[in-house]
Design a protein around this nucleic acid. Structure first.
Lengths: 252, 252
DNA sequence: TCTAATTGTCTATTGATATAGACGATTAAA
DNA sequence: TTTAATCGTCTATATCAATAGACAATTAGA
């Protein structure tokens, strides 16, 4: 009754080009068994046979991954993995971007790319426990670790409570730091909802993703020490660079 | 400095057919603002203009979503959403499939599709705190809610500790129930790691997903009341049917 | 230095994808 | 009953994706 994980199955006529399906598979399998200990991929002819396609189709897939910076092809030698670690992003009661990655990456900061004050939508108002249409500050930011974009966030804050927050965040590169100016020494994660979808063009630009790439979406509410919501946030993580680690309280 | 969420941008030459990109967008946006209060989509000509493509291309996208059961087209009337709720799957210290969805779906059960006893791989042995190559039971199962497949799991258990577990699970349709036969009245989630990737052909079959679909992957370890690992599990959720809700302990 | 293995480039052909336009069929409302 | 709006079907054409084969260029090892 044992079942083999079907290898090599690729779908034709699916609306996704074979070369892209193969590129996605190779990208996903690099971490596992595809490359040898030197980070070398099997030759193009072997990959073509494995996936049941023409060698040129495999070449298209490899070319795409080379453009992405995932692979490097060397004539006469082979094709090699440009190895890069995946980041483990913790999600727990005290989730903070900069602290969470402290031991994994050196340079880490948030970069502000846009901000605006606007009336709260129904969803935002409910999340922040405000009356509908209360003015809220919306921050659009990209988080980077070691110079690579890791996540793209849209955050909402009550505008009246945090005047000048955008400027403070832009300067400090950290929300935790910016919050101190408003007397918030500590804050907590109240809820996190995780989903996944294809990256939209906007996120693809900001996260340097290729078409068809996947983002993990975390919708979160942070509260202050008194339990009042201070931040409502939509974060999109590049799924091929980040794992989300759910931190459980001591269990058993 | 405000930034518009780029509407309608579709990428050509990306390896993903335009009709599939549009189908993915429509599927993702149905929950938001795309359909009106009666669940009716804008007419094909309007969608074609919005996405900047020919009407026939939109028709291909709609045809794919009709095959998926997401939309229903009625000549002369319009195109309508076959609305189906997304399930909210809780992840917390006491995560259980059947309990978690208790108030969201009536019929919910696990269906055993394969099982085997095999030596533990390094990863599995480490997760279950066993010596490498200890015999472990591997269960392959599909979880269903109201007859729709929701997730596809691969679970490992120490074979010596749980003789006959596969049969018990197959009969009960619930792991919680099957565990009772071994004196495990309660168990806890020690860790959960969430990631996302494209569904592989195997999972597409079991979860009735279309090519290009996304799965949320949760890798989890469950422990008994004494803190001993009892289960190591890889679960793939259909990302367009399920949100993962991270349950935090009382925060603030 | 020669040879085998491997990636790079070129041409040609077939099938899938996308555009374009015209018109039929059905529905709902004037 | 007429009309407008909408989805359904057909034909034609252009571009992209995939296959096929041949051979050049580079590298590593015999």
């Amino acid at each position: 009754m044992a079942r083999n994980p079907a290898e090599g199955a690729i779908e034709r006529r699916s609306g996704v080009a074979l070369w892209r399906q193969i590129a996605d598979r190779i990208r996903a399998e690099i971490a596992r068994d595809l490359a040898d200990e030197n980070g070398r991929l099997p030759p193009e002819t072997a990959l073509a046979e494995r996936f049941g396609v023409n060698r040129h189709t495999v070449r298209s897939a490899i070319a795409a991954l080379v453009r992405e910076g995932v692979l490097r092809a060397e004539q006469g030698r082979g094709t090699f993995v440009e190895r890069r670690r995946r980041l483990a992003y913790p999600i727990g009661p005290r989730t903070r971007f900069s602290e969470g990655l402290a031991d994994q990456a050196r340079a880490r900061r948030g970069r502000l790319i846009a901000h605006a004050v606007e009336p709260a939508s129904e969803t935002v108002a409910a999340a922040l426990a405000l009356a509908p249409a209360t003015p809220v500050l919306r921050l659009e930011s990209v988080a980077e670790a070691d110079g690579r974009p890791v996540s793209r966030a849209t955050s909402w804050f009550e505008a009246a409570r945090f005047p000048g927050l955008a400027a403070r965040f832009a300067e400090a590169g950290s929300l935790t730091t910016a919050f101190r100016a408003y007397g918030i020494e500590d804050y907590f994660r109240r809820s996190t909802v995780v989903s996944a979808r294809h990256a939209e063009p906007d996120d693809r630009d900001d996260l340097a993703l290729s078409p068809g790439a996947i983002v993990l979406v975390a919708v979160a509410i942070n509260v202050d020490a008194q339990g009042r919501p201070v931040q409502y946030q939509h974060t999109r993580f590049a799924a091929d660079r980040v794992d989300l680690h759910v931190v459980q309280p001591d269990a058993g």
